[in-house]
Design a protein around this nucleic acid. Structure first.
Lengths: 357, 357
DNA sequence: TTGAAAGCGCTACCAG
DNA sequence: CTGGTAGCGCTTTCAA
């Protein structure tokens, strides 16, 4: 109690006193309920202005018992794919008068746990989870919290939980089929650590589809951290493993750009010597060299869908406790071409290192 | 009042009742003050667990009267440069038990205004402003708020305001001098809209340095939105303006990547036909093709410095109300080379469009 | 159209 | 070591 008494009278009471009204009236003015006489309203506004008053949002949330803030959990905001979803979600939220707070988990489950705690503690009106590290305990916590939740990609629909999923199977199939039609027979799937878990549809579908289309084809899997550097690193490991792919299928565009870099360093030409594909169709995919063949995932729509299912709105069609599927689409650019027959990579690498071809 | 009474007893009182203690004791346990008897402590913890209790952070902040949350305002989180600063800041904050909330302003001053309102409303313990749209009114609001503030790049030191600046003059000089030494005489500065304001040291220094080194050199300025697409767009405008630069100096790496893309489309080789430089030395600068010659700005250190000046710490040396200068460093990669003597661009463009050379 | 006052959930002071 | 309780700043009945 009595914390510095009224050293700072910039609260409702201060404004009320200065305007010669009650706090109730001030509150009404500040929340523009049109029940206050204009002259009174003006006095209040003036007083607030003079005191440089800013309502304490904690007190407000507490009193209201509900908030207009949405929480969003993201594994890797650095990856433009996630950023785009975040941006779309935020912009939809702002348009409807909601605020958004983000928490970056960096693929760390400790971070995730503490972020979830934070969001629940803030009593967010809804929570979007665009993460890949989700264990059953946390799921339980989330379910118990009663907060409306929308998961992206992982998670199973429940009472308060909706799930937005991209049909990664379909996207991956399109890529493999396309590469197969170009004559590729030695393909590698390059992912990041979280795509190694059982949840990775892309990895699984890759293997299945390769097996189905070309029973004699060879397939290989490799992974590193998500990101440019991770892509480069994984490419390095892949090539030094001895496997000689004619095509490298990356789990996302971001890593693919890292892969391109390593290939270039090795003097391996794309797509002449080896084809490379990404996933997501982020802006960068179009700006790197060569531009990436990839699969388009509509981040904007995903962001909007997530918002729509987070906040009540009689107009829109919510599908609470359901699953929503988004369809991907192949985008062919410059990084893929017909499979080279010879052991292109090996000879390139030799010549790059100055050895006789 | 009486809002659904005790439909949900997941509050201190609920836990207290269930554990057979007072709310004071529960509070003590939850804030692990080691004054509670172990057996009592255990009972409380158990009760909290059973009720799936999560403290209401708004109530906590309100009662405490102070928060351990830092606010951060960013113009463009999509630009990896800003993201890196944010990340470093956040990680420093977490290490010291602070939370961080970000607000992306998208270079929009309305967004900035509402974000500032939000931060003040949340009574953040400190505010980092990594923005370029800052008018004097807002500065006043911030000053009046009494919140410790650290500005990046813009803003003038005041009582509660520290300023972290990069010595852009020095960086820009290094680039221009370097290009000049390679024989470049027709240079263009490519910025984004906010670098057109009076605050842009980079633009100014560019002009000054060019004039100083080579009085007969030609210089041109062009700008578009920040980002990959903006870079491409600006490059397009630049080339179609008739000006034939031998070097294009971009305000940052992010836009430079967009520039590279346009040049490639036009069949203009980098650095053979024209040199391109970036600024910041973001990760991507090393991964694009050709890798960018740029100026390194230590984002990590900047983030840490900002944090250090936002929260009190007797150990570290704070410079409140002061200005802190960070030194940049030239990084030469593949996108720059000796100036081509002939009107390379024009002839390239002609041949690219199928006209006789 | 306005005011009085009861909370919202938590912390921290004062007693015991 | 524990309980009682006065706020923190705001919203929202209920009455006037």
């Amino acid at each position: 109690m009595a914390q510095a008494k009224n050293a700072d009278l910039r609260n409702l009471d201060g404004v009320a006193k200065r305007a010669g009204v009650s706090t109730a009236t001030v509150s009404r003015v500040l929340n523009n309920q049109n029940v206050v006489k204009n002259s009174t309203r003006a006095r209040v506004l003036k007083a607030a202005e003079e005191l440089k008053y800013h309502p304490n949002l904690h007190a407000r949330s507490l009193a209201r018992g509900k908030s207009r803030t949405l929480g969003i959990l993201v594994s890797n905001m650095e990856n433009p794919f996630f950023f785009d979803i975040y941006r779309a979600l935020e912009s939809a939220a702002h348009a409807r008068g909601y605020e958004v707070v983000v928490a970056n988990t960096d693929y760390s489950s400790e971070q995730l746990v503490s972020s979830v705690r934070l969001m629940i503690g803030w009593r967010v009106a809804g929570l979007a989870a665009i993460v890949s590290e989700m264990d059953s305990h946390l799921m339980q916590v989330l379910t118990d919290s009663k907060i409306p939740i929308v998961f992206y990609d992982v998670g199973t629909p429940q009472k308060n939980i909706t799930n937005v999923r991209v049909d990664y199977r379909k996207g991956m199939k399109k890529i493999v089929e396309y590469l197969h039609s170009l004559g590729h027979t030695r393909m590698a799937f390059l992912g990041h650590h979280s795509t190694l878990g059982p949840i990775s549809e892309r990895r699984k579908t890759f293997l299945e589809t390769v097996a189905r289309l070309a029973p004699n084809a060879e397939a290989q899997i490799v992974a590193a951290a998500d990101g440019l550097e991770g892509g480069r690193q994984a490419a390095r490991e892949l090539l030094s493993s001895g496997f000689q792919p004619t095509a490298i299928l990356c789990v996302n565009d971001f890593m693919a750009v890292g892969v391109l870099r390593h290939l270039r360093d090795q003097g391996i030409r794309v797509p002449d010597d080896v084809s490379v594909t990404g996933f997501d169709n982020i802006r960068l995919a179009e700006f790197c060299s060569p531009a990436l063949t990839t699969v388009h995932i509509p981040r904007e729509r995903i962001g909007q869908t997530i918002f729509g299912n987070l906040v009540p709105d009689k107009a829109s069609d919510r599908l609470i406790g359901q699953e929503i599927l988004v369809d991907p689409e192949l985008v062919v650019r410059e990084s893929t071409g017909v499979a080279r027959q010879t052991q292109a990579i090996e000879s390139r690498q030799r010549s790059a290192s100055g050895l006789p071809v």
